[in-house]
Design a protein around this nucleic acid. Structure first.
Length: 166
DNA sequence: CGTCTTTGACCCGCGC
DNA sequence: GCGCGGGTCAAAGACG
């Protein structure tokens, strides 16, 4: 059972989370690309790699999701998966808020850093990465949470047009 | 010596 | 039109 919930506003974005058990059929889930199944935040807020599809366990994983769609934002009861899919069409962007001391999280992809910027009202810089694979449009940006410095916010933008290179 | 990071410059959209 | 904030470029530097 997959359910997507949304919480209160987070600056201009909206934070939600998605609960799912590993018994779900990932391939048929429309949000699979959008949510990047290979990276999740576990219940204890430790980053973990999603287990292989043939794993016998059925753990529940949780990811924090930051959306930017007005569609999702306007829903008070929380968006359905339909709305989530619409969000993907508007902007293929997903963010994870992760409790971590290091900002370089190995998610199975190779990244090339191309920029760093100090953001206003925050003492922390924001780092910009591009997917290392040529022709792949995916970018990500990494920054520390303004208030909770022990958290790292990783934002992915776009969908990989190639398999994960290990 | 090649490759990846660093870092200031540049660009672009937006509000005033 | 101009300044500001955020995103990207690219030359120079670091590092193996």
């Amino acid at each position: 059972m997959i359910s997507l919930h949304w919480k209160e506003n987070y600056t201009t974005d909206h934070i939600g989370y998605c609960d799912m058990s590993h018994s779900d059929d990932l391939s048929s889930f429309e949000l699979s690309e959008f949510l990047k199944f290979d990276e999740w935040i576990e219940e204890d807020d430790q980053l973990s790699v999603f287990p292989a599809a043939n794993s016998s366990q059925t753990p529940v994983y949780r990811a924090h999701v930051i959306g930017e769609s007005g569609v999702a934002a306007s829903s008070h009861e929380g968006p359905s998966i339909e709305e989530g899919r619409e969000m993907k069409e508007v902007k293929e962007r997903v963010a994870f808020k992760t409790k971590s001391e290091v900002e370089i999280l190995d998610d199975g992809f190779k990244w090339r850093k191309y920029g760093k910027k100090m953001v206003k009202n925050s003492p922390n810089p924001r780092n910009y990465y591009r997917c290392w694979v040529e022709g792949c449009p995916v970018k990500k940006r990494v920054e520390r949470d303004r208030e909770e410095q022990e958290y790292v916010i990783t934002t992915y933008e776009g969908v990989h047009n190639h398999p994960t290179s290990s």
